[in-house]
């Protein structure tokens, strides 16, 4: 099973470049549609849960 990171932001997806930055991997997207798709993919890949901060940014967290 190995070690898993919990209660950590695993990835950030956003279409507003100026709003995000920092330690977690950031994925920039073009629009709301792409934001939804990218967050969906990352949720499945990382076995995390997508949370919406506002209309432009989502974070993937494993609980």
């Amino acid at each position: 099973m190995g070690t898993t990171l919990e209660k950590k932001i695993l990835a950030v997806v956003s279409d507003r470049k100026e709003q995000v930055g920092g330690g977690a991997p950031v994925f920039y997207v073009a629009d709301a549609q792409e934001l939804e798709e990218r967050a969906f993919l990352l949720e499945k890949i990382l076995s995390g849960m997508a949370h919406q901060l506002d209309d432009h940014t989502m974070i993937i967290v494993r609980h």
């Binding site: 939804e36 967050a39 969906f40 949720e43 849960m49 997508a50 949370h51 919406q52 989502m58 974070i59």
Partner: peptide, 20 residues
């Protein structure tokens, strides 16, 4: 309510994806 899931007036969790 937006991304917030409620049961009656009790807040449960934030769900990001529309599909979920």
């Amino acid at each position: 309510e937006e991304a917030g899931l409620y049961v009656d007036d009790i807040y449960l969790m934030n769900v990001g994806l529309k599909e979920n």
